[in-house]
Design a protein around this nucleic acid. Structure first.
Lengths: 215, 215
DNA sequence: AAACTGAACTGAACCGTTCAGTATTGTTTT
DNA sequence: AAAACAATACTGAACGGTTCAGTTCAGTTT
């Protein structure tokens, strides 16, 4: 009934940290449990006492590093453009950020070949910021600042894609690393904002300015 | 001096094809040479006669599938917008395309942890289309259709990023899979085109830039 | 004569399990 | 309060069974 000795949270965290570091440095599939045990200083037997699987460990490690920064997810200053920029520029604490970024390529591949894990990753990690952006976009539409027929799903890709791209392809090239967050936001804003100075109508329903957006 | 029996190009290609298929289906690191031998119908001894390494095989397979579509890399119809859209929409033959797309996540991860291979991948595969886009952008700048201070590197990320993003994150969600090529091109065009009268009403975030500056 | 096959083989790594011994905790008794 | 106890966690090392990259080789085909 009474647990005589509680699990050492110290050991638990040491393992998680070591696992994250190794996953980020050498990749998920190529990091062995023995390596994690050795790096963490926790015996492998104990690791398998805390987690059933390598995948279970990976899952908790991933949720841990992506859950450390539970910021107020929503942003609404009234200025849609500013909100967009804020969300795209938002970054986790420096320490996390490095690990998270180095982890991304592995997660992309691992998720591609482990659909279950992939769903979890997208659902728990990549979806929240997406939702945040979607809310802002919908607000923009209802305020008439974006066209009513804006495809939100495509818009999210337009906003976030450039950052992902830069992260993957400009990694080795230190010459080209401007922060794409504000750039991408500005790019999108200039392309879709209907807030021209001759049009100040704020009420949402307006005649859609005929955009030859095809289709 | 003269080889009594030439290497079977048939075997060579069977191995390459089988390797590509397996790499795409199960990932690079988790595909064994034995599996490739069995799937190709070529004995493992022969495979190691044709390639020194698993990595050598991977490299040639990658170059093969990305070299099959040597199209006229350059596009210049005079209409910058059309050229951009064309390049972003351009696709390899259907057969290749499926394999290439499924291969991408693995290549991202493998390149992240094998810098040498990564350089080769970027240089031989991802760089050519980038260069093509850059040429178009420079042409647009020199013709005054884009602002002279446009950061080309960021612009490429703005154009290609959304497609990469959609490819990675919208894979499992069949509801939203519009072709982002034209959308991304239109998005960029609307944000940066300077000499269209449908955009002059935009409030001047950008100052009227001076004439073309050579780079 | 060289390329092929099929099969065996090496050496190393891997995951996950087991186990005897030890350390650390909560509980009970003195 | 101190000592004894019971229950559990941890260690370190080993082990089984598998998988892998790469090699070797006797025999077959071209």
């Amino acid at each position: 009934m009474s647990m005589a000795r509680p699990r050492s949270t110290q050991a638990h965290e040491k393992v998680l940290n070591a696992a994250l570091e190794l996953f980020a440095e050498r990749g998920i599939e190529t990091t062995s449990m023995d390596a994690i045990a050795q790096a963490s200083g926790v015996s492998k037997a104990t690791i398998y006492n805390h987690w059933t699987d390598k995948e279970a460990l990976l899952l908790e490690a991933m949720l841990m590093i992506h859950g450390l920064d539970r910021e107020p997810e929503d942003v609404d200053t009234g200025d849609i453009q500013r909100d967009l920029t804020t969300v795209l520029t938002r970054k986790p604490p420096d320490k996390c950020d490095a690990v998270r970024n180095r982890l991304t390529p592995s997660l992309i591949a691992y998720s591609a070949f482990h659909p279950e894990f992939g769903r979890e990753w997208r659902h728990r990690v990549t979806e929240p910021p997406r939702q945040c952006i979607k809310r802002i976009l919908r607000r923009g539409i209802s305020r008439g600042q974006f066209p009513a027929d804006l495809d939100i799903e495509s818009a999210v890709a337009l906003l976030l894609g450039p950052m992902l791209y830069a992260h993957i392809f400009n990694k080795e090239d230190p010459s080209r690393k401007p922060d794409l967050g504000p750039i991408s936001a500005a790019n999108f804003w200039r392309a879709h904002s209907q807030n021209r100075k001759d049009r100040v109508a704020e009420q949402g329903i307006k005649k859609p300015t005929p955009r030859s957006k095809e289709r």
